[in-house]
């Protein structure tokens, strides 16, 4: 625990402390900060403009989270039902995309979603549509990019909680007269809530702070919090304001992670010795 704590302090607490202090000073002319005490950065952040961006980011992240869970659950379920020797191979397939770079994977979606891209091309070729669909450079494209990149994590999280279920509880449910669907709803799903929560929080936290996907697939028109913070530090050179926005984002993530940890702790407490 000793060295681990040291690394944690060096890599987590110190940077966060720096960001935290930046938030209370005035911006420097060419970036950095001037050591003049102020609360102005906080009042500026209360502007409805920025609140709107926060809300939009949350909405996009929430949509991506919901879709990722809906895709990941059946996938994870199918993997647990597969023969044992297939499961490892299937799990490797799930994480296979991570062998390529995040940027490349996101660029690939530009090729797919373009006006002249693979999807529009195929639909036009099949005569389904006359005009190309506006698939790229909107929130739809951003959600697609986020879902694509983060679903594998959710599959892994849900798979791990599904595979920990005592199979005999599923059989017991059937034996006691439950249909397959009732068994899923009342016995399987409740035992995987912690896995769903872990995966969901993961997608949400990574999505709401993401700036590459909205930049590339949102076409720069769709700003999320991540882009906003990125701009404050690198374009607008307003480090203190960027620091305030970062703190809000970190606060949201901390609340979510904490809630999830409490839920997971409670769930695992219930599971032991059963």
């Amino acid at each position: 625990m000793g060295p681990g704590l040291g690394w944690l302090a060096l890599l987590m607490v110190v940077p966060c402390g720096l960001i935290f202090t930046y938030a209370f000073f005035e911006r420097g002319l060419y970036g950095g900060i001037d050591y003049i005490w102020t609360f102005e950065n906080f009042t500026r952040a209360a502007d409805p403009l920025y609140l709107g961006i926060f809300l939009r980011s949350a909405r996009i992240a929430l949509t991506a989270t919901a879709i990722a869970i809906l895709i990941a659950y059946p996938a994870a379920y199918a993997i647990t039902r597969a023969p044992k020797h297939w499961q490892t191979a299937l799990l490797i397939l799930v994480i296979l995309p991570f062998w390529s770079n995040y940027l490349i994977r996101t660029y690939a979606w530009i090729v797919m979603l373009n006006r002249e891209g693979l999807i529009n091309g195929a639909l036009e070729g099949a005569g389904v549509i006359d005009e190309p669909l506006p698939l790229l450079y909107n929130s739809f494209a951003v959600v697609v990019g986020l879902v694509y990149n983060y679903t594998p994590f959710v599959v892994l999280a849900i798979y791990s909680s599904l595979s920990r279920i005592n199979r005999e509880t599923i059989e017991a449910s059937e034996d006691l007269g439950a249909s397959t669907f009732t068994t899923f709803r009342r016995v399987i799903l409740p035992q995987t809530v912690s896995g769903v929560a872990a995966g969901g929080v993961f997608v949400f936290v990574l999505s709401i702070g993401n700036f590459i996907t909205p930049d590339l697939l949102g076409g720069g028109r769709l700003q999320m919090v991540g882009n906003l913070i990125y701009d404050q530090f690198l374009s607008a050179r307003d480090w203190p304001f960027g620091a305030v926005l970062s703190m809000f984002l970190i606060a949201i993530m901390m609340v979510l992670l904490f809630t999830q940890a409490v839920l997971a702790g409670r769930a695992s407490g219930e599971r032991t010795n059963s």
């Binding site: 509880t169 007269g177 219930e270 059963s274």
Partner: peptide, 26 residues
């Protein structure tokens, strides 16, 4: 009905809910 070797009790339900489960199915 089968009584399982692992007992296969539903870990997320109370004792009463476990026992009521089969009757609710009826």
């Amino acid at each position: 009905n089968l009584m399982f070797q692992s007992y296969a009790l539903f870990p997320h339900m109370s004792v009463a809910r476990n026992v009521a489960y089969g009757l609710e199915m009826e």
